[in-house]
Write a protein that binds this DNA or RNA. Structure first.
Lengths: 157, 157
DNA sequence: GTCATATTGATAATGGTTATCATTATCATA
DNA sequence: TATGATAATGATAACCATTATCAATATGAC
């Protein structure tokens, strides 16, 4: 099920900056702003739990349900992205208007390295077009061993 | 947490064919064989629940816990792959030795189209190498609207 | 200020997945 | 073939991330 953000209503004035998610036709909310700030300042990849902790420092008393709702809203309007690791809870990252990035995921130590390559965007668009698809986004995760873990493994043998 | 398949013990004889997952140093099991068969015959993308239903026809009485365990085992030894959609339960697909494929995911109707492109494998290897990564696999999901849903959207406007 | 309604926090409910445990099946060895 | 070690199994309880509910509150158009 895909949640379609309501676009029929537009806010005329906004007191919490242009980044709180309210530009998508929702009411302006200081909590959503706190969630977005937590997302962009708290680290590259935060679980909902971690976002909750961090947002609680910015806006004390914020509830975990609100964090989940805000994350969903922010993902819906493109200001955040959700990543689902093979195990553990979903993690989130702020998604600015800049170039998007992909992930190298180390299966040994769990490290996630963000990478960016323009060729990937081109290839993805080409693949989609070939199948009559109108792409809105993509996600590339490369699994393997990071250099440190690969070295560790070699020394064990 | 990564589950490392025990490789210290090797089975000398196997009565259920080379595809049951036991070649990874585990005991041979007819249920695991049934899960793998369900996976390859039941459809391109099955949830654990669906695998359970299908495997139950092959090997009646198989438990849901066994299905989860078998799926994990098969994923661990490369005979299956786990996909985590943005919502809903994880789905699984058989992963033969043939060329791997990527996914076009329609965000309107939920359809998943499998695509395959050798350029993707090359690009992925290049990206990993650039960061000292030893890649073991990757996953590319492209989100957007399939041709039918895109057409439907246009007719609405 | 007033009204309609989106948002919120607390918390119960949900549901996919995993852990537990007693029993059974598998396989190497004698 | 019998035996012992132990992996696999089924039933089900437990886990836990996420969602639904609901009454109270905050927001924004007028």
């Amino acid at each position: 099920m895909i949640t379609i953000i309501n676009m029929t209503k537009t806010i005329k004035s906004c007191s919490c900056g242009p980044d709180c998610g309210c530009s998508s036709g929702k009411r302006c909310s200081s909590r959503r702003g706190a969630v977005l700030r937590a997302l962009s300042e708290g680290g590259p990849h935060l679980s909902a739990e971690e976002v909750h902790r961090f947002a609680g420092k910015i806006r004390p008393g914020i509830g975990i349900a609100t964090v989940y709702r805000s994350l969903k809203c922010l993902c819906g309007c493109g200001k955040a992205r959700e990543l689902k690791p093979a195990d553990g809870p979903a993690v989130y990252e702020a998604a600015g208007p800049g170039p998007r990035h992909d992930h190298l995921v180390c299966v040994s130590c769990g490290a996630i390295v963000e990478i960016s390559d323009p060729a990937m965007g081109r290839l993805q668009a080409r693949l989609a077009a070939r199948h009559g698809f109108s792409p809105s986004g993509y996600r590339l995760d490369i699994y393997g061993n990071c250099s440190r873990c690969a070295k560790k493994d070699r020394s064990k043998i």
